[in-house]
Amino acid sequence: MDFNGSDTIPGPRAEDQLPHTAQAAAKIVIVGGFGVGKTTMVGSVSEITPLTTEETMTQAGIGVDDNFGSASKTATTVAMDFGRISITEQLVLYLFGTPGQQRFWFLWNGLFEGALGAVVLVDTRRLEVSFDVMGRLEERGVPFVVAVNSFPDAPRYAIEELRAALDLTPDIPIMECDARRRASSRDVLMTLMRFLHSLAMTGSRA
């Protein structure tokens, strides 16, 4: 990017600026496989038009000629979109729609470690693409809820059948949602917050 013409770099619109009183921000991640509705969910609850942060990943080849110079490396750009909800004059919540492949996660420092919790979006047409992500969240101790997107041609299962298939303990909330609808996406976030709150009450972890 040419920063010499930087007077013209579009920044937030006046109405998208945070107040000076904004003291701290927290984040939530929305994870799921390709095309499951991550961007849609971020967009439906965000107060700003979703933005994208990119990171380049150098594929140095795992265990292969790592030391033979940059010519053998290829760079992949990984994009993550995110939105924002102002909670109070002091507190801001960010939502990150994160690619499902675990190898991308470390690109953004602290993304999962620092997140309050996660929403795992699943598509019943491809349930198995979300298996890996749930395992990784469990390993890292990131509390999560599961939101099932109802695509029109998707098979429908009873929630308890899904719970058994996903091998989730009874305390982990599973719910249906329509990521295109703000109220539905908000309900998912509320469910996550209530779940986190209940964990805080019992002192236990997911």
């Binding site: 102002s86 917050m193 709150h197």
Partner: peptide, 21 residues
């Protein structure tokens, strides 16, 4: 500095987020 998840969640923070949502 951001608010990051702690071993023990801050309930008043979660309550504020719920009210905001």
């Amino acid at each position: 500095a951001p608010i990051v998840r702690k071993a023990r969640s801050d309930r008043s923070l979660l309550e504020a987020v719920m009210n905001g949502l």
